[in-house]
Simulated scan of single mutants.
Amino acid sequence: MDVEWGYEGKRGPEHWHELCDWFSEGAKYPYQSPISLSHNEQLIRNSEQAQLFFHYQKEQFTEKEFKNTMHFVPFSHESYVIFQNVRYFLTDIHFHRPSEHVIDGRPQEIEFHLVHTSQQQKNLVVAVLCTFDLTAPELDKIDLTTEWDYPNHLQTFSPALFLPKERSYFHYTGSLTTPPTAGPVQWFVFDHIQRFNPDFLKEFSEELLEVNNRPLQEKKERKIYFVSKHSSADLER
């Protein structure tokens, strides 16, 4: 189903549920995303239930424009994470501006979503919030093995380059942040704010750089977990 939606006016977030029955049904899921997160709220800390393990490797991605942002889509789904003994394969990387989640009351300038899907078609999203910094390395210079082929919209890289070195994170159950906003989606939001060189965005058209973040949603007493700092080695096994 191809239903036109956006981030303002009659097709903006407050009207998504009115655009079609599919969107209306997704909006009925009670625990919507994104939400505001805080280190000072009541959190379930370092629970085994919230452990996430990364198995990322270098692979080829194609660059596509759709759904109001730029996406990097892997060809062969070689990278994955494990959550509660279930394997979720990386299926998409995209970004929102400004950030959709807010940590300790502070939104950031951009948020990357690394979207994963299990064989049972369940969704898990890893979110990384970033602040713009012209002195930060550009994405294509972070990993010396990265290969960028801009004319053909092809990139070869390890998705680990998007992740912070200090991997402490919030975990909660929510929804998709774009229509149909269905759930449940397992969310993992890193609390370490990455420094991001905005030069990376220069290749994209202006319409992809406009505001494309969904407003914050109510928490509704849902459980929020927090896993303390781990090194990348601790979370890769």
Rank of each mutant, 00 (worst) to 15 (best):
W5H: 03
W5R: 01
G6I: 03
G6S: 05
E8N: 08
G12C: 10
E14Q: 14
E14C: 10
H15L: 05
E18L: 11
F23V: 00
Y29E: 01
P30F: 11
L37E: 08
S38F: 10
H39Y: 00
I44T: 10
R45W: 10
R45T: 11
N46S: 13
S47K: 07
A50G: 06
L52E: 04
K58I: 12
E59R: 04
Q60G: 05
E63N: 07
M70G: 03
M70V: 15
P74E: 01
P74T: 02
E78N: 11
I82A: 07
Q84T: 07
V86H: 11
Y88W: 07
F89S: 09
F89D: 03
L90Q: 05
T91G: 14
H94C: 08
H96Q: 06
H96C: 05
R97W: 05
R97K: 15
S99A: 04
V102N: 09
G105N: 09
R106Q: 15
E109N: 00
I110S: 00
F112H: 03
F112N: 00
T117R: 13
Q120D: 15
N123A: 13
N123K: 14
L124M: 06
V125I: 15
L129D: 00
L129R: 02
D133E: 09
L134T: 00
T135W: 11
E138G: 04
E138M: 13
I142M: 10
T145F: 14
W148V: 15
D149F: 12
D149M: 05
Y150E: 11
N152R: 12
N152W: 12
N152L: 09
S158D: 15
R167K: 09
R167Y: 03
T173I: 12
L176M: 11
L176A: 10
A182R: 09
G183I: 06
D191T: 08
H192N: 15
F196T: 00
D199M: 11
F200L: 10
L201R: 03
K202L: 12
E203D: 11
S205R: 12
E206V: 13
L208C: 06
V211H: 09
L216N: 01
Q217R: 14
K219Q: 09
K220D: 07
S228L: 01
S228K: 03
H230W: 09
A233S: 14
E236I: 07
